[in-house]
Nucleic acid binder design. Structure first.
Lengths: 342, 342
DNA sequence: CCTAGTTTCTAAAGCGCTTTAGATCCTGTT
DNA sequence: AACAGGATCTAAAGCGCTTTAGAAACTAGG
């Protein structure tokens, strides 16, 4: 039932021409109001929905916004992707845009994937995540003049473009301030070596805050998916009597690892060691003790990105829009006053 | 640079007609091999990628598989969506299919959303999650003869269709067996009241296993997002000296709640109470103690669904394909021998 | 050397929509 | 009463691709 239903069908049914029906549904004023209503009725009655391919071809717009999926990485997938996808798709749906997810096919580079999407005119715009300090995808899209929004930024000094970022600088600064206020004089930061701008920003903010407040800062970093190296790094930072009394994890996954290792070597949290993370992933509320962290509200970030995308696609003018969101401090049970070390 | 690049451009460049180029790229044998190669070269050189709208319109296929996003529910989003989206998009990308995510726009029902997608010919097939015991979406798609795969099933006795499900019956049976083997004689199951088939199946499996093994079973259930009611239910099951010595959480989120409440009322896990969950969400490894649970490998489920979808879309014949996956038992630290209760 | 059969390509049409350029019919002017 | 101007609709074209029918050129069979 309810077979195809095209403009032609409506036109024939009503004794009108196809363009008239098209314009009537489009609400153009050169079609008599009465006709417009007649057409709208018929469309409703027949369950008409414009064929997307026909519309795309004629209008040159696909109605799709693409999200390029970073490869692999279980970590990323769990903590981040679901929320972003949910927020984006909700935000886009409200604006009559569609979300497509483009995974990088085996044997292809992310850039290949993007190039294909753009050349096939499959998307009107793109959303990029996991931005590197000098991201080739951004250079490509800028060159091609394809609207895009990045979730995260390149390093400072790179060409301007629309982005949406969580102010992790402010968050890590706040974390250090909080710890300093609790009497900590030596803090640690466990980071990653991957070329992701957010890592560099968080490191820089931590460093700046620490030096401003006169705190000593110990750091270590390992490749994101090299759990082993990370654990070794954490363990060695925590060993020795000259250890930091508080540790910042670049992300919750790392902070939770710190918690685990602290427990293993008999360091009690927060009495002997404070730990603060970032992301508020689902596990963080249930760790022992529950992790103090920051909630970036990624779902909301997705929604906002949808709004920016829509603006780019419609009002195509003016300077690139850029937006900074604040992550909320989630104060749980892993931070407290600095212990008295001899 | 690399402006449009269409079949026409290639055709003119090579002095051929458009259909010839089309068929050459399609690898048809009625085009001379030499010509095919010449065309392929030119296409590569010009960075040609077929315009998706043109192709869709002519072929009648969109190349898209839609995933209809359940509304709201932070829980769902965190635990499940990311992995499924990742798996699906990877699996589809390998097969030259695209994934689109359709959120239900405000003021619309899920069925509206699906109907729109189908009528607009936006998708060649759909993937459905969170299946109800008698799901109207399934009835609709069956009626419309649109290929689809469900992740989860309806209750037994409903019309046949392609599905992919995790064998939670086997998992819960295994959990009960394990507990019985550890000497537990009274177990609890914390469930949800929502009309989701997996909940009913898990309950039934638990009940069957318990009665088969002669265990007493206490149950409680609350609406999935009514955290308060769930907590009250858990607390009251755990109160009283006649309490169960082991609790199964329908999902990890619930099991983690049980852990929390047990800690609050001074019940030590696993010495005094065993707890087992299902899902292996990211938090489960970090809880105190780390949660024993089942890992359904949702990413793999997504990949398999992509494969099924592809089969449906190409070989469109035979009986509906149905596939059952086994969840893997993740033995961590929340289960142990039954305590000796007086 | 002519007809039949291949091989290789082109012409024409159509997918369903939008857009541009008219055409047609009124209304009111002068 | 003839015409400008507005209101309302239609005809034609085209978006980029695929498919079907058929043309042209060649090969082979008798």
């Amino acid at each position: 039932m309810a077979k195809r239903s095209s403009l032609r069908e409506i036109a024939e049914e009503l004794g009108l021409s196809v363009p008239t029906v098209s314009r009537a549904l489009g609400g153009y004023s050169d079609i008599a109001l009465a006709t417009r209503e007649r057409v709208a009725d018929a469309a409703r009655r027949l369950g008409y929905e414009p064929n997307s391919a026909g519309r795309m071809l004629a209008s040159g717009k696909s109605g799709y916004v693409g999200l390029v999926l970073p490869v692999g990485e279980r970590q990323f997938v769990d903590a981040y992707l679901g929320a972003i996808v949910a927020g984006l798709s909700e935000g886009l749906a409200e604006r009559d845009l569609q979300l497509m997810i483009a995974a990088v096919a085996p044997g292809h580079t992310p850039l290949d994937t993007i190039r294909k999407l753009v050349n096939a005119r499959r998307v009107d715009g793109l959303v990029l995540t996991r931005i590197a300090s000098e991201d080739p995808r951004i250079a490509f899209l800028l060159d091609r003049d394809l609207p895009f929004v990045t979730l995260g930024r390149q390093r400072d000094g790179m060409p301007d473009h629309p982005w949406l970022d969580v102010d992790d600088g402010a968050a890590f600064d706040h974390a250090i301030e909080t710890l300093a206020g609790l009497g900590h004089r030596h803090v640690g930061l466990i980071s990653i070596t991957d070329d992701l701008t957010f890592a560099r920003r968080r490191e820089a903010a931590t460093e700046a805050a620490a030096s401003r407040l006169g705190l000593r800062l110990s750091r270590c970093a390992a490749a994101r998916d090299d759990r082993r190296a990370r654990h070794d790094g954490i363990a060695s930072i925590l060993a020795g009597k000259d250890r930091p009394t508080a540790i910042l994890g670049l992300v919750d996954g790392i902070a939770l690892d710190v918690l685990m290792i602290a427990a293993r070597i008999g360091l009690s949290v927060p009495a002997e060691l404070s730990v603060i993370g970032f992301d508020d992933i689902s596990g963080s509320a249930y760790s022992a003790p529950p992790l103090t962290t920051f909630d970036p509200d990624n779902r909301q970030v997705g929604r906002l990105a949808a709004g920016m995308m829509h603006d780019l696609l419609t009002a195509r003018d003016g300077a690139p829009t850029q937006m900074m969101c604040q992550a909320q401090f989630v104060s749980r049970a892993t931070h407290g006053p600095a212990p008295l070390l001899e």
